[in-house]
Write a protein that binds this DNA or RNA. Structure first.
Length: 363
DNA sequence: ATAATTTGACCCCG
DNA sequence: CGGGGTCAAATTAT
């Protein structure tokens, strides 16, 4: 199985991330730095070799698809259609189901359709019940939200099993033990909901017998709009949201938090996203893949939510982020030894947090 | 200091 | 009444 190769790619990313995290601590240790780079290169090279050796282009494509599904998501999907003048609305979930990486069988499928119809935007006044004196009881409708369920494998690479992370920023707001399930279910809502707009929510839970597979259910659609850095001047008419780019987000492969991306605060490097995205898209083109099918998701039992950077940069549509991409992709899959430069590019776009929250309530 | 996560309580629905 | 989802205060991380 070539999942090994895919895992290697992930592993490479992980290592890169770790290196990035420790960069500030080892800049004086060229030896270590060098070794680290070497290690990373080795991993990627290895992955490439595997792809070339035992996989057909198609398999590579599939692998990339899986990878993208895990790391990126609809955000990308949307961006893709927007930036590339995609007229073919990517709306439905048309990808194909997947199954693999986990080993266990378990068929099922992919997305149980919900119900059809659009709609979301529930009452904005839906808060204030659990507390104490709430005199309001906004009806809680649960059938309206279109539910989309998706099962995705937890990257079980090397040693880090990062829970699914999609391109959106979610905030965990609850966790509960579910009858009959051995693992708790965690509830997330879009981080930007605070601006009272994004009704998107999702719940994540590990499958009983396949701790490495998560089942995520999405409810509601994202409508995050972070107009420039202006919390005071929130976008008017939320419902509309047709003018500006409606959904964008970042995506990272994080386990924990984030730091720089959001709309208002901390201005900092905030563009890597575009590079990543363009890279991804570039790959799609390169492999002639169809857009990612669904979204993916995140977090597991112990909690991590994540991050993303929504393009704080006032969502500049695009920049000249189209060329380094080719190099990157090429470096990753074609050249094998001298990919240092490319790695730099990768690093420049990786933001991550670390933390060893070892936890794993296995059975 | 701020933001995210944790966790028990509370509410709705079946 | 109990399961499942959400809130919100407290806690922890950044």
């Amino acid at each position: 199985m070539e999942e090994g190769a895919i895992s290697l790619v992930f592993h490479g990313f992980k290592l890169a991330r770790e290196l990035e995290e420790n960069l500030p601590n080892i800049t004086n240790q060229p030896a270590i730095l060098s070794a680290a780079c070497d290690e990373i290169i080795k991993v990627f090279t290895n992955a490439r070799d595997r792809f070339n050796a035992q996989s057909t282009q198609q398999e590579i494509a599939v692998g990339m698809q899986e990878w993208l599904k895990q790391g990126c998501t609809q955000a990308m999907d949307l961006l893709q259609s927007q930036l590339m003048g995609g007229s073919g609305k990517t709306d439905q979930f048309g990808g194909g189901g997947m199954e693999m990486v986990g080993g266990r069988d378990r068929e099922t499928s992919a997305w149980l359709g919900g119900g059809g119809g659009a709609v979301q935007l529930m009452d904005v006044a839906d808060s204030g019940r659990g507390g104490s004196s709430s005199s309001q009881r906004p009806r809680r409708r649960k059938d309206e939200a279109n539910r989309r369920i998706e099962r995705l494998p937890a990257p079980r690479m090397g040693n880090t099993e990062i829970p699914p992370e999609d391109g959106y920023t979610w905030r965990k707001y609850g966790q509960k033990e579910i009858l009959g399930s051995r693992f708790p279910r965690s509830y997330y809502r879009c981080t930007h909901q605070k601006l009272y707009q994004c009704p998107a929510k999702k719940q994540v839970q590990r499958l009983d017998d396949d701790p490495y597979t998560f089942e995520v259910m999405y409810r509601g659609d994202h409508t995050c709009i972070m107009s420039s850095t202006a919390p005071s001047a929130p976008p008017t008419s939320v419902g509309g949201a047709t003018t500006t780019h409606e959904v964008r987000h970042s995506h990272h492969y994080a386990h924990m938090q984030m730091q720089p991306p959001p709309p208002p605060p901390t201005p900092s490097a905030s563009v890597p996203l575009s590079r990543w995205l363009s890279m991804d898209m570039q790959m799609y083109r390169h492999f002639g893949l169809s857009g990612p099918g669904g979204a993916s998701s995140s977090s597991g039992g112990s909690g991590m939510v994540a991050s993303g950077g929504a393009g704080p940069s006032t969502g500049r549509y695009r920049r000249e982020v189209d060329y380094p991409v080719v190099d990157l992709a090429d470096a990753m899959f074609n050249s094998g030894s001298s990919s240092n430069n490319s790695m730099e590019v990768i690093f420049s776009s990786m933001e991550e947090k670390k933390e060893g929250g070892g936890e794993d309530p296995k059975n």
